[in-house]
Design a protein around this nucleic acid. Structure first.
Lengths: 196, 196
DNA sequence: TGACAATACGCACGACCGTTCTATTCTGTT
DNA sequence: AACAGAATAGAACGGTCGTGCGTATTGTCA
């Protein structure tokens, strides 16, 4: 029982790494088998279908995202510091080879209904909820104004991240970082309690 | 000479329509041939390679984008009205089946160097330049403050569009529109000359 | 109208895809 | 040590992909 689970996890780690570059549906079982040193059919048996593999890859991606982006941010102080932490951690995450897994996967799957899409959507909703929750905490900590619309804040922050991803990864704009940070600071400034 | 160009254009129109849904590299020659009523080899002869077809599709997409998003905005008054026009026209454009061609194509090609990527990048740069130029006009018309960083404005507006695309198309959030408009209005307000 | 080029078709190729079936090897338990 | 069952391998399947070749059809102009 242990051995199977162990190789399955090794497969998923490699699968996530590969699909981060070629996409979740661009990942082929043959290529993944080659990369892991398994046979195509041996690997296939672990999942039963390509779709099940895709779902598992999305699950693995979410697991890693939580561990590398969300969890470390909880160590930052509640309120604005934590929001900055989320931004910085996501930034690091998006600088992996292939960029942010979810940005790519979302545009791959947005016209392909099914279980993989549903799993991916849940992950994205969790992420946006986390942003919104962090904003609410910033309000309750007295960092943000009480009338800040936290869901709207989450949208704005999410958008800036998408803009950064596009400028940096596709346009290869060296100013991408500065642009995103400028927008982010303005968003924070706009949300903060005004000094008297 | 006339006939060939005519069918080529008909092919490209269909090719753009299809690749808007399945992506620029997801578009297969067989399926495109079926959709246009041509034979695979007959269609293939028009382009010579899949890559050349992709480049042509990107060109067709750019042509249509200019015609449906940029040109009509020129009929709006210079300054803020034109900026609003660009936003509204892009919004309509992004509501086609398959969403905005360029959003999808960018994440498809961002890890695949080559001529198609280069062509796509040029289109995107043209679009962002257009946004920046519109902002500069708004400054010179006295709608925006003189110290507005127009390239930064373009980034912010571009990001909001990406956020809208993600919320509406992937998350299927019914509030996507309202969220984007709210952010867009705040961006305009932030850039405008402050009333005394 | 006849000739010549442009255009389109049919067919086949090799590569890779996801999937299935049957064997074989490995692992853990009595 | 023997056995059961899990884990892996191998070969093959039907399909689709992009691409090349030879030939037929169509369009164009003297």
């Amino acid at each position: 029982m242990a051995k199977g689970e162990e190789t399955r996890q090794a497969i998923l780690a490699k699968a996530f790494e590969l699909s981060n570059v070629v996409g979740v549906s661009g990942l082929s079982i043959g290529r993944l088998a080659e990369a892991t040193g398994l046979s195509k059919s041996g690997l296939f048996a672990h999942f039963g279908s390509k779709e099940a593999l895709e779902i598992a890859v999305i699950g693995e991606a979410s697991r890693q995202f939580v561990q590398e982006v969300m969890v470390p941010a909880l160590r930052a102080a509640r309120g604005e510091p934590r929001i900055r932490g989320l931004f910085e951690n996501w930034h690091k995450w998006s600088q992996r080879e292939g960029g942010c897994f979810f940005v790519g996967a979302c545009s791959e799957l947005d016209d392909r209904p099914g279980a993989p899409r549903d799993a991916l959507m849940q992950s994205q909703k969790d992420w946006i909820d986390e942003l919104e929750k962090a904003a609410r905490i910033a309000v309750s900590e007295g960092h943000f104004r009480a009338d800040v619309d936290c869901a709207q804040f989450a949208f704005a922050m999410f958008s800036i991240m998408l803009g950064l991803h596009a400028y940096a990864r596709f346009m290869r704009d060296p100013k991408a970082d500065a642009r995103a940070r400028d927008s982010f600071e303005k968003l924070l400034e706009f949300s903060r309690i005004r000094p008297a």
